[in-house]
Design a binder for these strands. Sequence first.
DNA 1: TCGTGATATGTTATATTATCACAATTCGTG
DNA 2: CACGAATTGTGATAATATAACATATCACGA
Lengths: 142, 142
Amino acid sequence: MQTATTEQAPTELKLSGNRKAVYMLMQQQQRALSAYEIIDLLRPQIGRIIHPMLVYRCLDFLLEKQLVVKLVSVNKFVALPNDLTEPGQCLICEICQAVTFSASSNPLQQQKRKIAATGFKLNQQPVEFHGICASCQKDHTE
Amino acid sequence: MQTATTEQAPTELKLSGNRKAVYMLMQQQQRALSAYEIIDLLRPQIGRIIHPMLVYRCLDFLLEKQLVVKLVSVNKFVALPNDLTEPGQCLICEICQAVTFSASSNPLQQQKRKIAATGFKLNQQPVEFHGICASCQKDHTE
DNA sequence: TCGTGATATGTTATATTATCACAATTCGTG
DNA sequence: CACGAATTGTGATAATATAACATATCACGA
Ligand SMILES: [Zn+2]
Ligand SMILES: [Zn+2]
Ligand SMILES: [Zn+2]
Ligand SMILES: [Zn+2]
């Protein structure tokens, strides 16, 4: 029923069916979602029950294409901001779950080189820092 | 039946019953274990079925006392090396699962200060880097 | 020593995250 | 169209984690 193209993805990528639906949802939401949150958000859009396997398969594909990343420390998935050219880092608030991406700044790049020099080959995922964001700190002291 | 003291923990800490058993196991193993691996390893020692809840409660306690850390990116737990004075960092091999702790070296400390300066309050867990260890790289090229 | 509240343990059930296995359908291309 | 490859559909199950409530043990003052 649906054609299998998309105009949103970078570099003229074609996504079809479920993959397109999952990726577009993730781009709209711009926050970390669990696979099951994706299922819940997708159901009303698609109008039928969506099986976990289906979502995990779409996520696997999108991960391979580096369109999304898995935040391994919280078991959630998020669309990669288009302006990030390297995996960089992200800050994850343990209270409100907000996720803030940025490029690796100098010290982190230095640290990564240092690790690489020991023979350990880092993967291409963002380094995940955990803590409490400024806004949640305010909430707790007022 | 068992008395409730231990002589292994740093700073004269008393652990009783299950907590002691879990902590001693983790110190012996010196590798990252899932809660369910702990259950399986503990059963023969204790001689009865150990419920997940029990192990998770012990882990919660040990986490609070900072005797163990949770590697949030792999959902495993590991006894904190006694010589680590700050949370530091760890390298996790995605093939063999080896985990190597070390103190934060300068660039990482600098990075942490930089993050703190933005108002984000980092927690006290090690920063987890993922990749492939030197030994596993050799295995793949030979 | 006994009573009492706090702490720790025992147990069942359930929630959350993720993968396996196999069938059916659709797609791309000669 | 025909064919194999890629994608989707579906049920079952594994792996990780927490909720809820009952019971037992400990600590310590009366
Ligand atoms: Zn927050
Ligand atoms: Zn709060
Ligand atoms: Zn390895
Ligand atoms: Zn291999």
